[in-house]
Design a protein around this nucleic acid. Sequence first.
DNA 1: GTCTATATTCAGATAGAC
DNA 2: GTCTATCTGAATATAGAC
Lengths: 191, 191
Amino acid sequence: MMPVNDTKTALLNSAENAARTLGIDGFSYADLAKDVGIRKASIHHHFPSKAILSTALMQRYRQNFEAVCAEIDADFATGGARLSELIDQYRAGSNGGKRLCLCTSFSANRDSLSDDVIEQISLFRAMVIDWATKAFDTGRTDGSIQGVVDPALEASAALSLLEGAQLAARAAGNPQFFEDALELLTKRMST
Amino acid sequence: MMPVNDTKTALLNSAENAARTLGIDGFSYADLAKDVGIRKASIHHHFPSKAILSTALMQRYRQNFEAVCAEIDADFATGGARLSELIDQYRAGSNGGKRLCLCTSFSANRDSLSDDVIEQISLFRAMVIDWATKAFDTGRTDGSIQGVVDPALEASAALSLLEGAQLAARAAGNPQFFEDALELLTKRMST
DNA sequence: GTCTATATTCAGATAGAC
DNA sequence: GTCTATCTGAATATAGAC
């Protein structure tokens, strides 16, 4: 990753990692300040409240992920290859059982979130399910995914499976839980 | 549910519901005290620390769930019927998108948990996966579940799917997310 | 076993100087 | 934009009377 001399971006990067590792309530402005190297009062200049920070985090995360999905479409032609890339994204995001997808992490602490973040979470899931539905549909047509009957239901199931697998791996601190949960789905894909 | 005149049990019931609805950090001893009708200092007599309370919660939850699984085995003969009952358990536990399985909820806030609770979580997942593996194996033999090749991998995937589906439904406050995610799996079962 | 009272710590947030 | 200093509230936890 590029070195960051933009304080706001540095704060977002630090906060995203903390949120995905510890949860939104698992880090404080004091932690953030120490990590970025400024005083905690200064953070309020960039993000007046933690609710605003959370919304900015989720918004950036969603946009980045949308860009990743578009890039996958550009780089891979078959549905099976695309879905395999999505699984790889979640595998990498899991970081050996130490992190969660930001959407999963936020979903788990729904009570301490503003309505704005809830809305961002819904947009994220809708976006991923929509993208995956198309990938499953493509995979059914080109024969690169076995046994696809209903692409939309496959997409819903795949997203829940990915999120649940990250959660199980993180709880145990063991990436093998992710691999076990994903193996059957992975086996249905060819490139 | 029976009326409770045992303070310790009343505390466990209130805490379990709060933990599954709001997360372990989403409620305080003050909330618990108000709900049960005693002062918060009194709670420390029964559960000296929140870590101890969390461990007791997870232990009781695991034992109860183990008993439920045993009862399912006694009441239903086929693998398909047994798995369908497990899905119903998670559907009911989701409570229309308002709650999570305690294991899922705790997994999401792993950082604020003691090692004892982490251990209990592992035991819970191992127990459910073991039970579901046998159910898938039975379903493969008796023909009540379609397309079973590897019962253990099916069990791992099913648990992650169930937990992820609860999480998605809760994030949106909409039980339909659970139904969408589980529909393909459910369709594979006959009784 | 439950109470009142209090200790301690830490969170998010604000005021105002530089 | 960043700082020091401070406010306010809430959390877990303890001491000791009843």
